[in-house]
Design a protein around this nucleic acid. Structure first.
Lengths: 374, 374
DNA sequence: AGACTTTTTGCAAACGTTTGCAATGAATTT
DNA sequence: AAATTCATTGCAAACGTTTGCAAAAAGTCT
């Protein structure tokens, strides 16, 4: 009896060569057929494609990348502060994450999500060097401008959500923070408030810009900028609450709050309520980010909106542009104020939520700008 | 003059062979040194490792995977309903996502995030077949039990966050939904409420189980289960709001709400407030998921907590077990009720938030159970 | 000093694709 | 009918690692 080699080895997965054998062609042809090349006869291609589909075959991506010399993956990194090891707390970033996932998949890229400790942000370079990702989107600039600059200088393709800092050597996408701050403050002034408190940590570039807007609005209206009316409330939930409690214990001399995130605004809202202060009658409150929740809570929250979907698109554009070695552009997205109950004019008879002002522009290199698109 | 070949080709990236040349050894040695193999002399290894580090070298992952025949990536899929194309709305899933990212990276896996349309969930098989990921974590079972069963049957390693359904052939990790429903309802009964409304879409397995707990609690207390006190409120924000508005327009005959998500609870809260009903005095409200926001809003929200970090760990365990071909286990995590202001007893003098009851167990294969760990 | 171990290294063959080039055969032209 | 095109296919060499095996170097024992 002849030695019989088992046809079906314990070979785990199906590969092109299997398809090739079944279709009676070579691997080259299979490869070309599946890639949709017109170098292969229509009938043959159809046969191969059908066969592959019916067998649920999908070519090994690692091998493809290796051969092609590039991957189709973009890494999205969420820096985590080592102070609070909490998972990303702010829903805003999360929503952005969701939009990014959609934007990337719809363009045929895979999304690699990475949480990295803020003092190891440099490590993300490895993602690119190792060919795991072709570029990196950083969600939140925080205090890492310097590190990001270093990465970009070393040729790592990065795009960052954050404040558009003038001399930046990396791609940035963000809202118009200064305008946002200004709109919010002007609105509160229009509501007749004069002692408007600014809640946010101005060490963060985005917050610093919002504060400038706040200050500009006050000055233009002829009011003083009272340093006592500024509190460096952090973004993270628990810490924010603690900070606010402490604040309200010591200060009560305000008639409006401008919070740099909706989360802060809502928390403040709750605390004010607990202390018997009514929103908006006693204190008007404006938040930032316009979370979907902002329109669901009571009272509904006036907030500054940044267009998330456009942001995600712009970030993807930016990281791809960065990869092609283009000069970094700073994309500033449309930024609008959405008025709701938490800043209702006391006298006014039923103001409907409305959009007050807009802004959409791009600084330095209009290339990737989708700001105005909506 | 001899032909001079340029030493430095436009060869983009550094690879092992470059390190090898610089260190005066072969690629094999570099490979082994970087892998920490003890087959290489300590001094040599140190030299190579240092060199690699200083050059920021990182081995090509595609090639590694190809050679090793496996990737170190786990795909996390977020099904998106094609009804509302919204990005993931519920913060609960997002938080879970964050925890998953941490759990995976801390164990050395990469996380591939994929949003997939709910009628193409089958496609995720391609992620595994193509070697892009070694397994899949599905966040949210929704109505896809059948599809998931099919995937598992075809040998795709999956682990699902959702309800632990008895005959399931795939790994599941979830809270004790029945107990959660029961705890919430018993608590509301203890608050003296009798017309407790259940808000949630019982077509979803998790919600169905919570409803069973609700029903059991009512029956054990000797109350009737009134079909008029059940409303299929969806999870997504806008739709939930619409549904609730419609509901409150037609029904007012309740003194408590048990909502299947905190988002629903908060929205309901806002609407009740707008209609002049006070929480908890007129209506007690209990939510589900214990979002961090639950303790920040006013009134703070009583809610059923599921341990997120443990959930993420269990999901990773599960998908790895699935990959090893182990028999599917159903992990049920500790589920507790966190009492807060929204269900404060009217008479009671300052009830502190407290945990009322616990549950942690595992059905069928205690292998991956980390339920009790915290 | 020779015959052993033991440690340290390098060679070369995979891993599963893609793609330049050459080969085949059919269709067209002369 | 030979010569020329053209459409379709296959061969074989990459892509950058890992790893079994054998070779070389360095100790250890008689």
């Amino acid at each position: 009896m002849a030695v019989m080699r088992s046809e079906k080895k314990p070979n785990t997965r199906m590969q092109m060569i299997d398809i090739a054998r079944m279709a009676g062609v070579s691997v080259s042809t299979v490869s070309r057929a599946l890639a949709g090349s017109d170098l292969v006869n229509d009938a043959t291609r159809k046969k191969i494609v059908d066969l592959a589909k019916s067998l649920r075959f999908s070519a090994n991506v690692g091998a493809q990348n290796l051969r092609r010399g590039q991957s189709q993956t973009i890494a999205v990194v969420l820096p985590k502060s080592n102070a609070d090891q909490q998972p990303v707390s702010d829903p805003f970033f999360i929503s952005l994450l969701g939009e990014l996932a959609d934007a990337l998949t719809s363009r045929g890229y895979d999304m690699l999500l990475t949480r990295v400790n803020e003092d190891h942000i440099d490590d993300v370079e490895g993602l690119v060097v190792s060919g795991r990702a072709l570029g990196i989107v950083v969600i939140g600039q925080w205090l890492h401008h310097y590190v990001l600059t270093g990465l970009a200088a070393r040729g790592v393709p990065i795009a960052v959500w954050g404040a558009t800092l003038p001399g930046s050597n990396y791609f940035t996408v963000g809202g118009d923070n200064r305008l946002g701050g200004k709109l919010a403050t002007e609105h509160l002034i229009a509501c007749g408030r004069r002692r408007i408190m600014f809640l946010g940590d101005t060490r963060l570039p985005e917050v610093a810009l919002r504060f400038e807007g706040y200050r500009d609005a006050l000055i233009e209206a002829g009011y003083l900028v009272n340093p006592g009316l500024t509190a460096a409330v952090p973004f993270e939930g628990k810490a924010a609450r603690r900070s606010l409690e402490d604040l309200f214990d010591h200060t009560a001399d305000f008639d409006a709050l401008f919070a740099c995130s909706d989360l802060i605004a809502m928390t403040a809202n709750g605390l004010l309520n607990a202390r018997g202060l009514r929103v908006p009658d006693d204190v008007c409150v404006v938040g930032y980010d316009d979370l979907s929740l902002a329109s669901q809570v009571h009272p509904t929250l006036t907030s500054v909106r940044q267009p998330l979907a456009a942001a995600a698109q712009a970030l993807v554009d930016a990281v791809l542009a960065a990869r092609e070695g283009k000069a970094p552009a700073l994309v500033v997205l449309e930024t609008t104020l959405i008025q709701r109950e938490s800043s209702q004019l006391a006298a006014g008879g039923g103001i409907k939520p409305k959009v007050t002002a807009k802004s959409a522009r791009s600084v330095k290199g209009a290339k990737g700008t989708k700001g105005a698109k909506r």
